[in-house]
């Protein structure tokens, strides 16, 4: 009986093999994912570029092709301010996410090495801030920054006898409030990446450095940092792209205000399309964002270790 089954199996294999062998028909295997990526990534991107060359609005299904939106961009006097706000938001977020992420990763790594209890709890708590949706994070931080009587930070300040701060209503402070909220949300990602980088640094390097006479600080400077360098660079570029595209958190926190003090490029694009129904001009801003991201991605690819390097 087993013999019969074996023959049947063999027959099945010989019948199926030629058609499905991946080396002979790679496209069949690659097709599903290719279609999925085309539909969800490439098609929308192409559409955005296409709409940027039209005068389309969400109010009128008819449109024609034109370069007017790009000409409008050149005349747009608010663009400089938007770019500056975006730069501040991205730069400050990236710097502090990296620093805090590295500090927490170092502390966690030390905790694991010393078998301290509760390390995994800390990790989960920090990660939970990362999985909170941007809009929800924005609302939570709005409660924290709120200048009403229930505002968390201001009531703390009141308790210690300090005057309240206009976290969200003063333009020069509101941008930093947005940055703080975004740092809180994004630090976990850097922490995880850098922690993974720390774990793979061989312990014997630290032992060799200790015997060689390096203090803890010099061990960090001469062993940890150089060993983390590739991951630090990749981390920087990834979170730069993430932050550049962040608008949900700001939308919920300040809506871009007061005035336009916290309106970053991605939020501007969102406002143009979904508030002004101006699909064409929104698409132009989206194309600008895309271009900046492509530049970052280019650096990212350059920095990734090549396959023939180990």
């Amino acid at each position: 009986m087993t013999e019969g089954v074996a023959t049947a199996n063999a027959a099945l294999r010989t019948r199926r093999r030629p058609r499905w062998r991946i080396s002979e028909h790679p496209y069949i295997w690659v097709a599903p994912l290719t279609l999925l990526l085309l539909a969800t990534y490439v098609y929308p991107a192409v559409e955005v570029v296409r709409f940027s060359f039209t005068n389309a609005t969400l109010l009128n299904p008819e449109y024609e092709y034109t370069l007017r939106s790009y000409q409008a961009l050149q005349r747009n006097t608010s663009l400089g301010g938007l770019l500056w706000i975006t730069f501040l938001f991205v730069f400050a977020s990236v710097v502090f996410q990296l620093l805090l992420g590295l500090l927490i990763a170092l502390a966690l790594n030390r905790g694991v090495n010393r078998n301290l209890p509760g390390v995994s709890v800390v990790r989960i708590v920090i990660l939970s801030s990362w999985i909170v949706p941007g809009v929800a994070a924005g609302i939570v931080w709005q409660l924290i920054f709120s200048e009403a009587s229930y505002g968390f930070l201001n009531s703390l300040l009141r308790d210690v006898g300090l005057p309240p701060v206009k976290w969200l209503s003063r333009p020069d402070i509101a941008i930093w409030s947005a940055v703080i909220a975004n740092i809180w949300r994004g630090t976990a990602f850097s922490m995880i990446l850098l922690y993974a980088g720390l774990v793979i640094i061989p312990k014997s390097l630290y032992e060799a450095a200790a015997v060689d006479g390096a203090s803890a600080w010099r061990q960090f400077w001469y062993v940890t940092l150089p060993q983390l360098r590739p991951i630090l660079l990749i981390n920087t570029i990834l979170i730069s792209i993430f932050t550049l595209n962040t608008f949900d958190l700001i939308l919920a926190l300040t809506g871009g205000g007061p005035g336009r003090a916290t309106e970053v490029l991605s939020l501007y694009a969102y406002n143009l399309v979904f508030r002004n129904f101006d699909l064409a001009n929104g698409s132009v801003i989206a194309v600008v964002l895309l271009a900046i991201s492509v530049v970052f991605t280019f650096f990212y690819i350059r920095l990734l270790p090549k396959e023939n390097e180990t």
Binding site: L205, A209, A210, V211, P226
Partner: peptide, 30 residues
């Protein structure tokens, strides 16, 4: 670092990002 010892490790523990020259001189630099 204050025992004035040198140690040779089983896996060598050379600093991968440093040249041989820098590896040799690291203890003196420290």
């Amino acid at each position: 670092r204050d025992r004035d010892i040198a140690m040779v490790f089983q896996d060598y523990a050379l600093y991968p990002h440093m040249s041989v020259k820098q590896n040799l001189g690291f203890g003196l630099k420290m």
